[in-house]
Amino acid sequence: MSQQETEHKSEWPLWEVFIRSKAGLDHKHVGSLHAADAQMAIENARDVYTRRMEGVSIWVVESKYLHTSDPDESASMYEPANDKIYRHPTFYNLPDELKHM
């Protein structure tokens, strides 16, 4: 146990999150988060990494159980929840002459 873990007993463990955004695709690592248990980790993952987009499959694994070989990963993709259209830049009515935004 590291020093930090003894100092902060209540720090929730870290989890790695893998998401399959469409059936037929692989689960992809999207990031990590803290949660008290696996169930909370899955729910938090939906809230944080998909903003609750439906139909996605989520895997979580406690980071300490993850063994690493080749660290080379490609940049992760992100799709905002489909019904929260105000998250899309094109939701905003802006003049054509506006540049660089």
Binding site: S76, Y78, Y92, M101
Partner: peptide, 16 residues
């Protein structure tokens, strides 16, 4: 990469 994707809407809503 993730942050920047979301930031674009932030600036646009502000300008609007």
């Amino acid at each position: 990469v993730r942050v920047c994707k979301e930031e674009s809407f932030h600036q646009r809503q502000g300008f609007e």
